[in-house]
């Protein structure tokens, strides 16, 4: 009995386009990426070559992983602003501990604050229902404070970048950045988790309609706590990769990546309201932002203008997304 089926009516082009954009957000993104690269090539003929591509990917990867944290948290209607601090902490602890410790031990020490901050974030958001933005901002301030205290205790022993991390962060093999060795399995794991596991499904469902998941027996705090711990651990791993790329431990190492990570997820089609999006789009979003940054640098656009642009992108994309959803 399909008497209730929606009768197909002629749909105006505008709405068809919108629906297309909502269904296949990746295609316009890829087109945008290509356009940006073409513009770059026109402005600086010859800049787009094998080395440039490897370099762009190298810088896009840490951004893409952090944007993965934002993607997952945003799917539940949240956000994780502590990723910058967490990445910085794990990088800094790794670089300083590896001087006297076995690398494995240093690695464990480096990941500890990540797990801890993720746990606190998860409890704050999931149990106490603090707005994720405020909660993660708060833990990131505390984290920064702790890092400063920590810095003074290790100031004498100095720091070094483990060779492995440097190789992973900067090395290029047969034209491919070594970081891909880490990133490809990681991205595959994230995509698989989101699409094919119960946990991933719950992230979408919680962000789409928390009440419905509650009625289906989902316990919100469990999902949220697990999510923020995952996000923090990913941020910690990013920190290790990033220190291998930048090679200069500092107390604000990964901070500049926070804003773009949010922007990358939003551009990639993940809704800041939750329930919609995916990691593939985010990866392209990260690439777009990296290319855009190069472009803005070539145009000698100052840092301030870049931030304004990012802010406007977030606002514009969110508002546009709202319209697409509403008009259905």
């Amino acid at each position: 009995m399909s008497s209730t089926a929606i009768t197909p009516a002629p749909v105006p082009l505008g709405r068809r386009l919108k629906r297309f954009m909502a269904d296949r957000p990746l295609i316009p993104l890829v087109i945008l990426l290509v356009i940006l690269v073409v513009i770059l090539q026109i402005l600086r003929p010859g800049i787009v070559n094998e080395r440039w591509i490897a370099n762009t990917i190298k810088f896009a990867i840490p951004l893409a992983i952090l944007a993965g944290c934002q993607t997952m948290t945003m799917l539940t209607g949240g956000i994780d602003l502590s990723v910058g601090t967490v990445a910085t902490m794990s990088a800094f602890i790794m670089a300083t501990q590896v001087v006297n410790q076995d690398p494995a031990v240093a690695f464990l020490l480096a990941m500890m604050p990540a797990v801890l901050i993720g746990l606190v974030n998860g409890i704050g958001v999931g149990v106490f229902r603090v707005h994720p933005l405020i909660m993660t901002l708060g833990t990131s301030l505390i984290g920064t404070g702790c890092l400063q205290v920590y810095q003074r205790t290790v100031i004498a022993s100095g720091a070094k970048i483990p060779d492995f991390l440097a190789w992973l962060g900067t090395g290029v093999t047969y034209g491919f950045p070594n970081a891909l060795l880490l990133f490809v399995p990681l991205a595959a794991l994230i995509i698989f988790t989101l699409a094919r596991t119960g946990f991933g499904r719950l992230l979408y469902a919680v962000g789409d309609n928390e009440r419905a998941t509650r009625l289906s027996g989902v316990q919100y705090w469990q999902v949220i706590t697990a999510l923020y711990i995952t996000s923090s651990v990913l941020a910690g791993i990013t920190g290790l990769l990033y220190i291998g790329l930048i090679k200069a431990p500092s107390l604000s190492l990964a901070e500049p990546l926070v804003l773009p990570s949010v922007a990358a997820a939003v551009i990639g089609g993940t809704s800041i309201f939750g329930g919609r999006g995916g990691y593939t789009g985010t990866i392209i979003g990260a690439l777009i932002l990296t290319v855009l940054t190069t472009l803005l640098t070539i145009l000698q656009m100052p840092e301030g203008a870049r931030r304004i642009l990012f802010g406007l992108i977030v606002l514009f994309v969110t508002a546009a997304y709202l319209r697409i959803v509403e008009e259905r």
Binding site: G198, F199, R201, L202, Y204, A205, D208, N209, R211, A212, T213, L215, S216, G217, V218, Q219, G275, R276, V325
Partner: peptide, 20 residues
Amino acid sequence: SEALAMQRSVRENIALPFSA
């Protein structure tokens, strides 16, 4: 609208309690 994750598929909505 209280019971369904509106942006998700029929399958995911039906299978939602399985993952809880």
